[in-house]
Design a protein around this nucleic acid. Structure first.
Length: 206
DNA sequence: GATCGACCCGCGTCAATCAT
DNA sequence: ATGATTGACGCGGGTCGATC
């Protein structure tokens, strides 16, 4: 059942979706008002109520920044989302900051879930080559600690080093499995999951 | 011209959080 | 503990454009 959004409501949905992608939480009414160039928060409030009635968003009562995008079909028609490129990820090195700290990559909204903050890392090395993730590729990371066995994750080891591997929970430890038959898995008991890979972008180099 | 709906505003109020 | 600030909400009312 298609829902019709008016121009302003459409703008609010687009802004909220982009904001959540970028920051991992929703904007305040004040921020939305500023983005829409309106001076009254009541105006924003009214539009949000309308959007909630249409089941496009959900608001968590009594919570600051409690707007959740329910209907992701509206996210899909936005042109693109700017995701920050945070750095380089290599097997067994700390995440190295990207050369240009303000660099972003425009990606299709299809590339992200729209529920959590996402960002991009550039891959160094070929530890995931058999999963078709090559040196120089860009991976889209969704910031989450909730991962399943087999997910490709960004894991922070207890020595402070970060790595991109497939995640497998074992009885007493975690196995971080490379996709490269020349490399061995990493076993660790104390692993911090930074996020999981939800997309891959490749520039061909000739 | 009258009506209607969308959009917008100002003002007052309340609750939560922060600073002192 | 208290006052200030911030974020959110409700209410009444105004403007504007489309439609009849």
């Amino acid at each position: 059942m298609a829902v019709t959004l008016y121009k302003r409501q459409r703008q609010i949905v687009d802004y909220v979706a982009q904001y959540i992608q970028k920051n991992g939480f929703s904007p305040t009414l004040k921020e939305i008002a500023a983005a829409l160039n309106v001076s009254s928060l009541a105006t924003v409030h009214e539009h949000l109520q309308a959007l909630e009635r249409k089941n496009v968003i959900k608001r968590h009562e009594g919570t600051v920044r409690g707007i959740e995008l329910v209907d992701r079909t509206f996210l899909r028609v936005t042109d693109s989302i700017d995701l920050p490129i945070l750095g380089f990820i290599a097997a067994g090195s700390p995440i190295e900051p990207y050369t240009d700290p303000d660099a972003t990559f425009k990606v299709s909204p299809e590339m992200v879930t729209g529920k959590k903050r996402s960002y991009i890392l550039q891959v160094k090395g070929q530890s995931m080559i058999e999963d078709h993730i090559d040196d120089g590729d860009y991976v889209v990371i969704e910031e989450t600690q909730e991962v399943n066995n087999g997910d490709i994750v960004v894991a922070l080891l207890d020595n402070g080093l970060a790595t991109l591997k497939r995640f497998y929970k074992e009885v007493t430890r975690v196995r971080l499995e490379p996709a490269n038959s020349n490399m061995s898995p990493i076993y660790a008991t104390n692993v911090q999951i930074q996020g999981r890979v939800v997309g891959l972008i490749r520039k061909f180099r000739y």
